[in-house]
Amino acid sequence: MTGRTNMFPRFWPNAARSNRIRTLWLVGLIAVLAVLLTLSITIGTRNVDWADIIAAIGGAQDTIGQAAVALRIPRTFLALLAGAALGLAGAIMQGVTRNPLADPGILGVNMGASLAVVIGVAWFGMSSPKAYIWTGIAGAGCAAIFVYTIGSSGRGGATPLKLALAGAATSVAFASMVIAIVLPRGDIAGGIQSWQIGGVGGATYERIAPVLPFLAVGFAISLLSARKLNSLALGEELAAGLGEHVATARAIASLGAILLCGTTTAVCGPIGFLGLVVPHLCRTLIGVDHRWLLPFSALGGAGLLLGADILGRVIARPGEIDVGIVTALIGAPFFIWIVRRQRVREL
């Protein structure tokens, strides 16, 4: 009893201090997110005074300024949801694969959802929002299974490098297939090409409402997988020794990520690199405990996508740049930095 009692003074203060630091980072992240939400509503191609902004938040649309703000509110809400979904999905994928390069875009999941949606539109005349969502989820799931199967083949199993290469090759192949399907169809080419860039412009409450149940289920499954991901981080053998069913834990966590990726891609188009950048930054701030990392990644993803959307509106005024382009400009150098930072053996 004496030895056990002496352990608590040694370790408990460190744990308490660590949790206090994480709580402070959480408060700071929420404050930054609140600022970005305000900026997203107030900044656009048209300058709007505060009286119109407040009136528009209250539901008024009597002036051009109020109508402009009314359009920004659902756009901001969609960016918040999509960013949180992609940030959380990236953290889940990195945890499931134990791969520092895992990302819905790099692993081909987003492009799989995109290809499925394009096939549904071009070949089956799909137009229902729920059909888009179900098709996107199915495409994301099939792509994830395909990439993991290819990356697991051969000696050494599913190493991070093999998964990244399999995902990159799959993304290129799926992107080529999308082009091949769309090129002969002039009637849908313009809309598909615009959607393929990835963006949150043109959002409406009617467009957002169908995705809410799917995202809610995806968020719930993903966040409840935190303890399982902590076990998987110890290695398969140790996780199994602790009583964790490794295959089931991976499947459940992956299901949450697939729901988030497929749904987000269906409504916004493929937005890359966000799921790569955000979990790495959050891991630097609060560590590897998924009970903290997953909520932080969701909030960080929401903040980064909102910031990218605001930046796209500011630097191209009176036009705008879609968030898919902005996140690519941010994420591509970050991806190169991660690859250069990791030793070849670790990949």
Rank of each mutant, 00 (worst) to 15 (best):
T2I: 13
N6L: 15
M7N: 09
F8C: 04
F8H: 15
W12T: 12
P13I: 12
P13G: 12
R17Y: 09
T23Y: 11
L24T: 12
L26A: 15
A31T: 14
A31F: 15
L33T: 14
L37K: 03
I41P: 04
T42L: 12
T45N: 13
R46S: 13
R46I: 14
V48Q: 03
V48T: 11
W50K: 05
W50T: 13
A51F: 04
D52T: 07
D52H: 11
D52Q: 13
I54N: 10
G58H: 11
A60G: 08
A60P: 01
D62A: 14
G65Q: 05
A67R: 15
A67V: 11
I73A: 02
P74I: 12
L78E: 05
A79V: 00
L80A: 10
L81T: 00
M93T: 01
T97P: 01
R98S: 14
P100F: 07
P100M: 02
A102D: 07
D103Y: 00
D103Q: 07
I106Y: 01
N110W: 00
N110K: 06
A113Y: 01
L115S: 00
A116T: 06
V118T: 06
V118M: 06
V118Q: 02
I119R: 02
F124V: 08
G125P: 01
S128W: 09
A131Y: 05
Y132V: 00
W134H: 02
G136M: 06
G136K: 07
A140T: 01
A140F: 03
V147Y: 07
T149V: 07
G156M: 11
G157K: 13
G157I: 11
T159R: 11
A166I: 06
G167M: 08
G167T: 07
A168C: 06
A169Y: 05
A169W: 09
V172S: 14
A173Y: 13
A175F: 08
I181G: 00
P184F: 08
D187Y: 11
G191S: 14
S194F: 14
G198L: 02
G201C: 00
G202I: 10
G202C: 11
T204Q: 09
R207H: 12
R207F: 09
L212H: 13
P213D: 09
L215E: 09
S222R: 04
S225K: 10
A226C: 07
A239H: 03
A240S: 15
L242H: 08
G243R: 13
H245W: 09
V246W: 07
A247E: 15
A249D: 03
A249K: 00
A251T: 10
I252K: 05
L255T: 13
G256E: 02
A257G: 06
I258R: 01
L259C: 03
C261N: 04
C261E: 00
I271H: 03
V278W: 04
L281S: 05
L281V: 09
C282E: 05
R283V: 02
T284R: 13
L285T: 07
W292N: 01
W292F: 14
W292T: 02
L294D: 03
L294N: 04
L294H: 03
F296P: 01
A298P: 02
L299V: 14
G301Q: 05
L304D: 02
L304R: 09
L304M: 15
L305S: 06
G307M: 10
I310N: 01
I310C: 09
A316G: 03
I321T: 11
I325C: 10
I325R: 04
L329W: 02
F334S: 08
I338Q: 05
Q342S: 13
E346L: 11
L347A: 10
